[in-house]
Design a protein around this nucleic acid. Structure first.
Lengths: 249, 249
DNA sequence: AGCAAATTTGCAAAACTTTGCAAAAATCTT
DNA sequence: AAGATTTTTGCAAAGTTTTGCAAATTTGCT
C-alpha cells in the first residue's frame, strides 16, 4: 500500500461520508494512527480537506470550515471587530453602519457593555436587540434587500436627528486621493448624513478595499478620524493614508 | 463525534426548525449540556446563530420568539391571518402593526403578492425582506425588546409621512364602550399616528382580547372600519361591536 | 424583593496533537 | 550489488484542547 493509494482511499471515504477519523483510517488501511495522521496532514496542506480534532472533514461540510469563511466572519473581520471594540471605550452613543463587518462587531460586543447604538442595519437587530446592555435605535427608511439596510431620504433625515460620540463606518472603497467612495448612491448619502451627526468617525476597511474607488463620493480622507484595518499600523500599504487619518493597530 | 460534526448537525437542525435548545442538542448528540452550550457559543461567535436563553436561533429569525411554531402560530392566528389576507385585495400600500398575529399574516402572504408594506415591527423584516413582491419600508425609532417593534416620537413622526390604503392593527384590548386600548403608551401613540395616516383600518383581535380594557386609549370603535377575529361573524360575543365596526368572516 | 432556573467560571481528568527520535524501507550512487 | 542517503514509519514524552462537574453568579419571573 503506497502513500498515494492511501491518499486516494482517504479522499474517497471523505467524499462518501464527509468526514474521516484518524482511527478509522488507521484500522481500515492497516497503518498506524501516526501514519494516518501524517497522510491527512499532507492532504490538508493541499487544501483537499480540513483537519479537525480527531480527523478531517470535507471543506464543504460546514460553513465554519471553508465555504462561508470569507463571506461571513473571516479572520480579517474578527481582527477589525476586536480593534473597533477597543475604540468603543468611553462612548455612550455609537452609530453602526451596514455590512457584515459591523455584524462581527455587534456579535463580539462583551455582555457587560452599556451602549446606545443607532443603526439602519437590520442584520444587527436580532443581535443587538438581544443584548441586555444595548439601547437600540433603528433608523427607518426603504429596506434594501441586498444590504439588509434601510436607505433613502427618510434614513438621512432620521440620522440627522441624533448626535453620536462615534460612527463606525463600513467602507466599500478607500483611496488616499479619492477618499471614501460608495457603490450605491443611497448608501453613500446615508453615510454622509451620519458622518455629519457624529463627533468622531472611524472607518472599518478590509485591506482588499484599500486603494479602490467607486463612483459615489462620500468624503475626503481628512473628514474621518481613523482607519481600522486588519493590517498592523506600520504596514506599507497604509502609507498613503497616514497624512489625514489616524491608523490603529 | 467531533466538535465540527456537532457544529454541522446543530446548524442543520437550526436550518430545519429555526431554533435549537441546549437540552435538545445535549441529548441528541450525546454530550453534556455544557458542551452543547460551548458549541453554540462558538457558533454564535462566528455569527452563524444568535444565542438566546435556553438555546439559540437562526440569525435572521427573532431571538425573542423562542417558542414552538405551533404555539406561535395558533389556529386562531392562522384563521385571522387568512381573513386579513383576503382584505388585502386591491391594496397598494399597507401599514402592518406589531405582534405575532402580524407575523402570521406576513408569513402567509402568497408569493405572487405585489405590495408596499410599512411597519415598525422588526419581526417582519426577515420575512417580508425575503419576499420578492414586497417593497418594505421600515419605521425607525427606539427598539423595544419585549415587542420587537420600534417605538417613540420618531416612529410617530415617520408614520405621519406616509399614506396607506389599509392599516392592519394588532389589538391588545377591545371593548364596545372603551374602544381600542393599549397596555403600553408608546405603542398606543404609534397606533394613533398610523391610524391617522391610513384610509381604512382593520383591527385584528384574538377573541380572548375582546371585552378587555387597558389604560391607554387608542381610539373609539367607530374610528376603525372593521374587526377581524377568528370567530364567525354571527358569533354572539361580537354583538356589542356590530354598531360601529364591520365584522368579517 | 425573592425564588427558581439558566448561565458563567474555574478546575482537573481525559482525549487528542505535536515533536523528537530511531528503526525500517525505499531510493540513489558508484 | 553493496553501501550510503533519503524517506517513511512507529513509538513515547511533552504540550494542548476538550470535556464534564460543581460552585458562584446572573437572569427572568412573580
Amino acid at each position: 500500500m503506497t502513500k498515494e493509494e492511501r491518499f486516494g482511499l482517504i479522499l474517497k471515504e471523505l467524499k462518501a461520508s464527509g468526514k474521516v477519523s484518524f482511527e478509522a483510517v488507521a484500522s481500515q488501511l492497516q497503518v498506524s494512527e501516526d501514519t494516518a495522521r501524517r497522510d491527512i496532514d499532507a492532504l490538508s496542506k493541499n487544501g483537499l480537506l480540513v483537519k479537525v480534532r480527531g480527523g478531517a472533514m470535507a471543506p464543504s461540510a460546514n460553513p465554519l470550515l471553508f465555504q462561508d469563511r470569507e463571506e461571513l466572519f473571516s479572520d480579517a473581520k474578527k481582527v477589525i471587530a476586536l480593534k473597533a471594540l477597543q475604540q468603543l471605550a468611553g462612548c455612550r452613543t455609537v452609530f453602526m453602519d451596514g455590512g457584515t463587518t459591523m455584524l462581527a462587531v455587534a456579535a463580539s460586543l462583551p455582555a457587560d457593555t452599556r451602549l446606545r447604538v443607532i443603526t439602519h442595519n437590520m442584520a444587527l437587530v436580532p443581535v443587538l436587540g438581544a443584548h441586555p446592555g444595548v439601547e437600540l435605535i433603528v433608523l427607518g427608511g426603504q429596506y434594501d434587500r441586498a444590504t439588509q439596510t434601510n436607505l433613502g431620504v427618510q434614513t438621512c433625515l432620521e440620522a440627522a436627528r441624533y448626535q453620536a460620540d462615534l460612527y463606525l463606518m463600513g467602507v466599500c472603497s478607500a483611496d488616499p486621493a479619492a477618499g471614501i467612495t460608495a457603490a450605491v448612491a443611497a448608501d453613500g448619502e446615508v453615510k454622509k448624513a451620519v458622518l455629519a451627526s457624529s463627533l468622531k468617525t472611524l472607518a472599518l476597511v478590509n485591506h482588499e478595499k484599500l486603494n479602490t474607488v467607486d463612483f459615489f463620493r462620500v468624503c475626503e480622507l481628512a473628514a474621518i478620524d481613523g482607519l481600522i484595518t486588519e493590517l498592523p499600523s506600520d504596514d506599507p500599504r497604509l502609507d498613503g493614508y497616514r497624512a489625514g487619518g489616524v491608523e490603529l493597530v
